[in-house]
């Protein structure tokens, strides 16, 4: 019963953060600020949906004793870790590529990278 409530709470938090991330993607003015919304919030939201699955697998294993649910939880942990690392590196790569392609941060109070210019 407690596990059900925890699963529902984690799912709701995950969906909420994913939704806010998409709202940020549609609302923010330039590519760098959009990246802030998507990278951080969709990663965090997806981690929470994965956490819901992990809790569900653990609770089912305790109540039924079926080892299939342990497999479910371990695979989900690996998927969540892969997601976190690939998302951070991927967004870094897109930001670097965007700045090299000549796209400046449109509303910006300061741009030190522009002055450096390798």
């Amino acid at each position: 019963m407690i596990a059900d409530i925890l699963v529902l709470a984690c799912l709701s938090i995950g969906i909420l953060f994913n939704t806010l991330g998409i709202v940020g993607l549609l609302r923010f003015p330039d590519v760098y600020t959009r990246m802030h919304a998507t990278t951080k919030m969709t990663t965090f939201g997806s981690m929470f949906t994965a956490l819901a699955v992990i809790i569900f697998g653990g609770a089912q294993f305790i109540s039924t004793g079926d080892s299939q649910y342990v497999t479910l939880s371990t695979h989900t942990i690996i998927a969540a870790l892969a997601l976190a690392f690939t998302n951070a590196v991927g967004s870094h790569a897109i930001a670097r590529g965007a700045h090299r392609s000549g796209l400046k941060p449109a509303p910006a109070v300061v741009d030190r990278l522009e002055e450096w210019a390798p």
Binding site: L20, T33, A108, E114
Partner: peptide, 14 residues
């Protein structure tokens, strides 16, 4: 970031 998405108060820079 959730707060900034909702209110739109940003001051970006590198």
């Amino acid at each position: 970031v959730a707060y900034r998405v909702i209110t739109g108060k940003i001051r970006p820079g590198i």
